[in-house]
Design a protein around this nucleic acid. Structure first.
Length: 567
RNA sequence: GCACCCGUGGUGAAAUGGAUAUCACGACGGUCUUCGGAACCGUUAUUGGGGGUUCGAAUCCCUCCGGGUGCACCA
């Protein structure tokens, strides 16, 4: 790789100047006009020797110039003592050729070869809405799954669905009150959501709260046949409904974990470690973990409540073990909203004592919340935007856009791909942990910094390539023009971008990068005629377009965004 | 109160301790007899306050101000 080559090149020059080198920082300057790579080594080493940094830089450049690299066309000293490298025509031509030859494997790496990674995300609850928070989790988890797989790991996607607990009892309570148990076939997921809101309100009243808690116990014990039938049916339609959404979003899970199947297991583990320096009895007979004894920023949390039911923490502990039994992972990633950050830290604290080898392998990635300009969503009050509703609204906007452009009818499939792209991009373009203030009009633009813009750029490139075909212009690497353009200067960096996205679990790096290359390509397109039989460099320009399309497709795929050929 | 996170143009974001802080939206003005106008070009305005570390700070440390989340039996 060019970066390593440049590093040894610089190290050799420093060695000649008798400078001890440990590490050399090589980076891309912020502005492309400053060159392709830059090093601050003159400034760093000048400081140690008390030399003037610019003078030292000059000495270094003198040495560098003595043994030129083919890949470097120009070296210059700028500002306080940066040494900037401009790469050569040969380097870029070669890079484009490599991209075209590597195709869909371009950008892959072997960093995680041999690793087995399980990623848990989305985690909606049956009997409740699939809301936009779940869309966020799904978007981020799916993208991380793909980035990890692209880096050579074996990946399993897992979804954990909370099919027991008070939330279920709330919904069931309202359903039973309405008497729907008589005609199950008419029950819809909308009824469930409405019932949940109703049940939540009722839970605020003391006497109805008692009823719901009692029902929860009945549900847990499965002691009433009629109630069981309603429960089974409600769970079934919920899960089927979720499955439709996963399909729309492009996720296919390998493992499903149901809370009803892991909760008891978690409780057993907690009881096993009770009184062994991990868990202890707290107020009212609950089993607690006193996190603050191990880390002052942790706090005490209940793992098994006074009624003997496992809480979230115990279930998650059981889940970690269950996952491992099913699939002996080397890394387990759990994607959740950041409101449970503190619980998770306590959970990991307990896990370190119970399953130290699993705790070490567990990574928690949390996303921010989608907030409405009007405030926080809550399915308790019924003030929610559902995933389905949002996707539907976006699709309407896409259709409207197509109609006003008089571009004819797009297939439902493409409309879905574009809608999902708009949504996913708006989630992935920013730091994973940050909240998104979700203003429908602003957040879902199809122009500029948007998913559809990326898809559009890709489709445009493909249509250029198709035209080159009909005019019998083949890819030709020999014919590159002297001048190097911005598209070339960005495309070869894709593998580096993937690597940093992986290391920091930040799909955002890829999103930002794709916008950059799309912008560069569109500007290039506006300025140059690519397919032109009278132009000798046309074959190269087509090759460049092909390379752009390849990187865009690979990059979008890592974001979980489809690349329609026409839109 | 304690813990964790955050504060960047009018708005939403970006920036492994580096150069003139980068984009998009908005607003205003331009480009098209062309391979896809969901495009391109130009103008516009910004690091919450105060200290410190550093050759160099949006980034690290301290402090103040402002916001979010969580703080025992919900997830």
């Amino acid at each position: 790789m060019i970066a390593e080559k440049l590093t040894t090149y610089i190290q050799a020059a420093l060695k000649e100047l008798a400078i001890e080198t440990d590490e050399i920082a090589l980076e891309h300057p912020t502005l492309l006009s400053h060159g392709d790579y830059s090093t601050n080594c003159a400034m760093v080493y000048a400081q140690r020797s008390g030399e003037n940094p610019r003078q030292l830089a000059e000495k270094i450049v003198e040495r560098l110039s003595e043994k030129k690299l083919n890949e470097v066309s120009k070296i210059e000293i700028v500002g306080p003592g940066f040494i900037n490298f401009h790469l050569s025509r040969d380097f870029f031509t070669n890079a484009i050729e490599v991209i075209d030859e590597t195709g869909e494997a371009f950008g892959t790496n072997k960093i995680l070869n041999g690793e087995k990674v399980v990623i848990e995300y989305t985690d909606p609850n049956p009997f409740k809405e699939f809301h936009i928070g779940h869309l966020m989790s799904n978007t981020i988890g799916e993208s991380l799954s793909r980035i990890v797989a692209f880096s050579g790991a074996e990946v399993r996607r897992a979804c954990y669905q909370g099919d027991v607990g008070v939330h279920v009892a709330k919904t069931m309570w309202a359903l039973l009150k309405e008497g729907v148990a008589e005609n199950l076939s008419e029950l819809t997921v909308k009824d469930l959501a409405r019932a949940y809101t109703q049940g939540s309100r009722a839970y605020d009243e003391l006497d109805t709260k008692k009823e719901i808690d009692a029902l929860n116990k009945v549900l847990y014990e499965k002691s009433d046949k009629k109630i069981n039938a309603l429960y089974e049916h409600g769970r079934k339609i919920s899960l089927e409904y979720f499955e439709q959404i996963y399909k729309k979003l492009g996720t296919q899970f390998d493992f499903y974990f149901l809370e009803s199947e892991t909760g008891g297991f978690g409780k057993e583990i907690v009881e096993e470690f009770l009184g062994k320096g991990v868990f202890e009895k707290g107020e009212g007979g609950a089993i607690v973990f006193r996190g603050e004894q191990y880390d002052p920023t942790l706090h005490t949390r209940v793992f098994v409540n006074a009624q003997g039911l496992p809480t979230y923490e115990a279930k998650e502990l059981g889940l970690a073990k269950k996952k491992y039994e099913l699939y002996p992972y080397t890394k387990s990633i759990v994607v959740t909203g950041n409101e449970i950050n503190d619980y998770f830290r306590v959970l990991l604290g307990a896990m370190k004592l119970v399953f130290p080898e699993l705790a070490e392998k567990t990574v928690h990635i949390s996303h921010g919340m989608l907030r409405l300009p009007t405030g926080k969503m809550s399915s308790r009050t019924g003030d929610v935007i559902t995933g389905e509703g949002l996707l539907g609204d976006i699709a309407e906007k896409v259709i409207e856009k197509v109609n006003t452009d008089a571009r004819g009818v797009l297939s439902e499939n493409i409309i879905n791909h574009v809608s999902v792209a708009a949504l996913k991009y708006s989630v992935l373009r920013q730091g994973t942990g940050k909240d998104i203030i979700f203003d429908f009009e602003k957040s879902l633009s199809f122009e500029g910094d948007s998913g559809p813009y990326l898809q559009y750029s890709y489709a445009r490139a493909l249509s250029v390539i198709a035209k080159a075909h009909t005019e019998a212009i083949d890819l030709l690497f020999m014919s590159a023009p002297e001048e190097v353009n911005e598209v070339e200067r960005l495309l070869y960096r894709f593998p580096e971008v993937v690597t940093s996205a992986l290391k920091e679990y930040s799909p955002q790096y890829i999103a930002t990068y794709l916008i950059e290359i799309a912008r560069a390509f569109n500007a290039y397109y506006a300025e140059h005629k690519i397919v032109d039989a009278t132009d000798l460099t046309s074959g190269y320009k087509v090759a460049l377009t092909q390379a752009f399309a390849t990187v865009m497709k690979n990059g979008l795929s890592l974001l979980g965004i489809e690349t329609p050929e026409k839109m």
